[in-house]
């Protein structure tokens, strides 16, 4: 509760861009009102022990984002006939809602791949990719790259 109040106040001060005592108090009052309004109970769902793994995931993601944007740029500029897109079914080891959501979003944000849907039994994620020469290699790449890291953080 206190952590949430402090975080909200810090956000208020940063957003208004005025580091003064008056502004800090104003932020604290607004944050307290906000917490009462949304009936905030208990604590934030975040454990500090996961922070290094989460940072690792973020760095890995930024690397993938920058490295493979060039690949998409190339496939935009090349003739259309050289494309070999496809929809691949990736089996999921993740079980939690948060884990699957984060994995699907990360896949969509990395260039060349796009998550389309999750099967109703939540065991399969269908991914559209711009370049699938080998579906099995693609599956392995997703599972060993992103899924393992997401699993370490969220499950």
């Amino acid at each position: 509760m206190l952590v949430a109040l402090l975080l909200l106040t810090a956000a208020w001060v940063a957003l208004t861009g005025e580091v003064t005592l008056a502004n800090f108090l104003e932020g604290a009052v607004v944050s307290a009102l906000l917490l009462v309004l949304v009936r905030f109970r208990g604590r934030l769902g975040f454990r500090l022990s996961k922070a290094p793994k989460a940072a690792g995931l973020l760095l890995y993601f930024l690397k993938e984002l920058l490295l493979s944007n060039a690949a998409v740029a190339r496939s935009i500029l090349r003739p259309v006939s050289s494309l070999s897109p496809g929809i691949v079914a990736v089996p999921l080891d993740l079980t939690s809602d948060a884990g699957i959501t984060v994995l699907a979003n990360l896949i969509t944000l990395t260039p060349g791949t796009l998550s389309l849907d999750v099967s109703p039994d939540r065991r399969t994620l269908w991914v559209h990719a711009l370049d699938v020469a080998d579906p099995d290699a693609f599956r392995r790449e997703v599972k060993e790259g992103f899924e393992r890291r997401v699993k370490e953080v969220f499950e």
Partner: peptide
């Protein structure tokens, strides 16, 4: 330039 909706989405969403 992309040939179908899915490839177009791929190109636009991350770029």
């Amino acid at each position: 330039r992309m040939p179908d909706v899915f490839t177009r989405l791929s190109a636009t969403s991350k770029a």
